Amino acid sequence: MIRLMQQSDVQAVTQIEKSVQTHPWNQQQFVDATAQYQSTVIEKNGCVVGFCILQPVLDEANLLLMAVDPNQQGQGLGYELLTASLNLLKNNPIQIFLEVRESNTAAIKLYEKADFHQIDLRKNYYPKADGTREHAIIMVKSCSDDFAQLFK
């Protein structure tokens, strides 16, 4: 089940974030996200196992953060969560942008499956646990139905 994130989900979401990120968001950032952005969660057997935070901006959107519990990865939950979350956007974005660590090949494959493609590279963007930095791949998804409506 995919639904909007509630305040009661913040602790579970924070734990997922800590398990997948070297520099995770804190609990207050997730509390703020539930009020400021479109924040969704995916449940399996009544437990939150993933989340997606999207920032609608005019006729675009930014994917700020997304993660699935490492114990639940590889089951298609990330793709299900991403596509459902994008479909819930109320601003009908023409384009959706994201940044992803260059080393996160699983996420890159997921985004490509969802029709995102690389448009740029932000060098030395993400901090790593060892103090060095790694590149961010900037990706975009064009929502063709919205483009078609512009020319009607």
Rank of each mutant, 00 (worst) to 15 (best):
A35H: 13
M66E: 00
A136Q: 09
E102F: 08
P70H: 02
L110V: 10
Q28F: 08
P24Q: 10
Q38N: 12
Q118P: 09
N62W: 03
S19D: 15
E60V: 00
S8T: 11
V10L: 08
N62A: 06
R133I: 14
N45C: 03
M66I: 01
E99M: 11
L86N: 04
Y79S: 05
H23L: 12
H23I: 11
T34P: 11
S19Y: 10
A114L: 12
Q29W: 11
I94E: 06
A61E: 00
Q75N: 03
H23K: 14
V57C: 01
R122C: 15
P127H: 14
Q11A: 09
D115V: 08
L63S: 01
L121M: 10
I138D: 08
A107K: 02
Q21N: 14
I96M: 03
R122W: 09
L81N: 02
R133F: 13
E99L: 04
R101N: 05
I119S: 08
A33F: 13
N87I: 03
I94A: 13
T132E: 14
P56N: 02
D146W: 10
M66K: 01
G46W: 02
I53G: 00
E134D: 09
V48Y: 02
S85H: 05
M139Q: 14
I53M: 01
S8R: 11
L54T: 01
F97H: 14
Q36I: 12
D145K: 15
W25T: 07
N71P: 05
N26L: 13
K128E: 13
L86I: 13
Q73S: 13
V100G: 03
A61D: 01
Q95L: 11
I53D: 02
T34C: 14
N92T: 07
I94L: 09
C143Y: 03
A84T: 09
Y125D: 13
F97Q: 05
K141T: 12
T22K: 10
N92D: 11
K44C: 04
D145Y: 04
A12C: 06
Q72P: 00
E102V: 12
K113C: 04
A106C: 09
I119C: 09
I138K: 10
Q27E: 15
I108D: 05
I108N: 09
L88F: 15
I42R: 03
V68Y: 00
T40K: 05
C47W: 07
S8V: 11
Q7K: 15
M66Q: 00
G74E: 03
H117R: 14
V41F: 04
A12F: 05
N124V: 12
H23Q: 13
F97V: 08
D115E: 11
H23S: 15
V68G: 00
C52W: 01
E99S: 03
A12P: 04
I42F: 06
V68F: 00
A33E: 02
A61G: 00
A61I: 00
G74A: 02
